[in-house]
Simulated assay, not measured.
Amino acid sequence: MKRTLEYTLCRTRNNTPLVTLDSPLGNGQELEPDALRALAQALLDIATQAEQQDVGKHYHTSKGAVEFE
Rank of each mutant, 00 (worst) to 15 (best):
E32C: 10
E32L: 11
E32F: 09
E32G: 13
E32Q: 12
P33N: 04
P33M: 04
P33K: 05
P33T: 11
D34F: 03
D34S: 08
D34W: 04
D34E: 13
D34A: 11
D34Q: 11
A35V: 01
A35E: 13
A35I: 01
A35H: 02
L36N: 06
L36T: 08
L36Q: 10
L36P: 00
L36D: 05
L36S: 10
L36M: 11
L36R: 13
L36I: 03
R37A: 10
R37H: 06
R37Y: 07
R37Q: 12
R37G: 06
A38Q: 10
A38M: 06
A38L: 01
A38K: 02
A38P: 02
A38F: 04
L39Q: 02
L39I: 03
L39P: 02
L39D: 01
L39A: 03
L39H: 03
A40K: 08
A40C: 08
A40R: 09
A40I: 04
Q41G: 07
Q41A: 10
Q41L: 12
Q41K: 15
A42W: 02
A42G: 01
A42T: 03
A42H: 00
A42M: 01
A42D: 00
L43N: 01
L43R: 09
L43K: 05
L43Y: 00
L44A: 14
L44G: 08
L44S: 09
L44T: 13
L44E: 12
D45C: 06
I46T: 03
I46G: 00
I46M: 01
I46P: 01
I46Y: 00
A47F: 08
A47Q: 14
A47C: 11
A47R: 12
A47L: 11
A47N: 14
T48F: 13
T48I: 15
T48Y: 11
T48Q: 13
T48R: 15
T48A: 12
T48W: 14
Q49F: 07
Q49C: 09
A50M: 05
A50D: 05
A50Y: 08
A50G: 04
A50F: 12
A50S: 12
A50T: 06
E51K: 13
E51Q: 15
E51P: 04
E51V: 11
E51G: 10
E51R: 15
E51N: 14
E51W: 09
Q52E: 15
Q52P: 03
Q52N: 14
Q52V: 03
Q52K: 10
Q52S: 14
Q52A: 15
Q53H: 09
Q53T: 11
Q53S: 08
D54I: 01
D54F: 05
D54S: 12
D54R: 08
D54N: 15
V55F: 07
V55S: 01
V55N: 05
V55L: 07
V55P: 05
V55D: 04
G56T: 06
G56A: 15
G56Q: 07
G56D: 15
G56L: 06
K57Y: 08
K57H: 09
K57D: 10
H58T: 14
H58M: 10
H58C: 06
H58S: 14
H58K: 15
Y59F: 15
H60F: 10
H60N: 13
H60Y: 09
T61C: 12
T61Q: 12
T61R: 12
T61L: 09
T61S: 15
T61E: 13
S62G: 11
S62M: 07
S62I: 04
S62P: 04
S62E: 09
K63I: 04
K63R: 14
